[in-house]
Simulated scan of single mutants.
Amino acid sequence: MLGSKRFESIKNQGKIIFNSRFLKNFSSAERYEFLQLCHRRKYKEGEFIYYQGDPGTGMYFIEEGKVQLIIEPEADSEKDDFIFKLESPESFGALSIGYELRRFSSAKCMTDCILLGFFKPDFETLKKRHPAIALKFMEKLAMIAMKQLDITTKTLQEHTGKVEAYSLQFQSYYHSKKESI
Rank of each mutant, 00 (worst) to 15 (best):
R6P: 03
R6T: 15
R6F: 13
E8L: 13
I10K: 10
K11V: 13
I16C: 12
N19T: 08
S20E: 02
S27L: 04
S27V: 02
S28Q: 12
Q36S: 12
H39T: 14
R41Q: 13
Y43G: 08
K44T: 14
E45D: 12
G46I: 09
F48W: 06
I49Q: 00
K66I: 06
V67I: 15
I70H: 03
E72V: 06
P73M: 09
E74P: 05
E78Q: 10
E78T: 08
L86H: 05
E90D: 15
G93F: 06
G93T: 10
A94Y: 01
G98N: 03
R102D: 09
F104C: 04
F104D: 02
S106Q: 02
A107H: 00
C109K: 01
C113N: 04
F119S: 09
K120N: 06
P121I: 03
L126N: 01
L126W: 00
K128P: 06
R129C: 03
R129V: 03
F137T: 00
M146F: 11
T153E: 04
T160C: 14
G161M: 06
G161F: 07
Y166D: 04
Y166W: 12
S167H: 08
Q169Y: 07
H175M: 13
K177G: 02
K178T: 12
S180N: 14
